[in-house]
Nucleic acid binder design. Structure first.
Lengths: 181, 181
DNA sequence: GACAAAAAACCGTCTAGACGGTACAGTAAA
DNA sequence: TTTACTGTACCGTCTAGACGGTTTTTTGTC
């Protein structure tokens, strides 16, 4: 069992707890037990609870940020490529990878400072989106709609059923294609 | 001091704590002290912490739901009135009344079941918005954008600066006015 | 409208348990 | 010999909730 395997197992376990039982049930002991590691073992990898949350946030941001960048680079059309990448990747992530939410919520609850990396990433994306060859207000609306979808799924606030979700995605993409500045 | 006054004071105090110090600092004692009530007094009104959160959620939903309904009723144009009311009221609430966030976050953190009333209200609004005389996909996009704005402000994820925020609001409203089904 | 009884509103202390974190001795593998 | 743990014991602090007591308000009765 390599160092990274155990770390990974702990992060997944922690995300799982947040997701199913709520933030308040995320304790070091509970996370350790769920990961099949002793409390000492957990503290070996994450010397404090803040460090654990930090790890969760890092973990969630890593793939996400890279995917968006890659999506933008591979887009054949220059106009609106960042906005499209952001839309597509968020739609994808929020179906497949619910542990995203867990890290975010845990950080917000336990230590808002830990949200910094997410905030920084968003600033960058927002900047790209505003200078994407689209009408910046429209581009911003699209970005917000994507976040709204995520939000609605985190909190279960009238989340869209599958078909509608797909139609919304298509519409958002379409709106990036015929609204040049 | 009537029963309702004290209840109200406790709810405000609790929302205040969540808002300024974070969810984890919301304890019964802290809420009681801030409300100028003893812990026993607080427990008289809210027999458990869950009950307190429940009260917060109820409180936040009451005005919000009523405002949206009123906004829709007073709208001179039939087409898109619910969507417009939802947009306007959420923009307003999320500038003026941060206790929305507090209740929501507290519930999500402490006991996700307590989100039920919010979820129910959202189901209703989503239903209105989808049958508002607008293209339902567009209407849904607008709704999501509004939620996204709220979300971005709660977590500080590239929140819009004042002027852009205003322009986005105007654009959203405008989109409800020239997109009949 | 005086007054007692009852109910409602509220106080403040106490307790049992949980939690984050420390310390440390030991183990198994690389 | 270092890395990656296990396991246990422990400490200080915090907190939800219980509880018994006290004040204030309401209600019924004359």
């Amino acid at each position: 069992m390599s160092k990274n395997d155990t770390r990974y197992k702990i992060l997944i376990a922690a995300a799982d707890i947040v997701q199913t039982d709520g933030i308040l049930d995320l304790t070091l002991e509970a996370a350790a037990e769920k990961a099949g590691v002793s409390k000492g073992g957990l503290l070996y990898h994450f010397p404090s609870k803040d460090a654990l949350i930090e790890g969760m946030v890092e973990f969630l941001m890593k793939n996400y940020a890279e995917s968006i960048k890659m999506g933008a680079e591979q887009d054949l059309s220059q106009t609106g490529k960042w906005t499209r990448a952001f839309i597509k990747e968020t739609f994808l992530q929020s179906t497949s990878n619910r542990s995203m939410d867990a890290g975010l919520m845990a950080a917000a609850a336990i230590n808002p400072n830990l949200l910094k990396p997410v905030q920084d990433a968003y600033e960058e994306w927002q900047n790209h989106i505003e200078h994407d060859g689209l009408d910046p207000i429209l581009a911003t609306v699209l970005r917000l709609a994507v976040d709204g979808l995520w939000f609605s799924e985190i909190f279960g606030l009238a989340p869209l059923e599958d078909n509608r979700r797909k139609l919304v995605l298509e519409r958002l993409i379409q709106l990036t294609q015929d609204n040049e500045e």
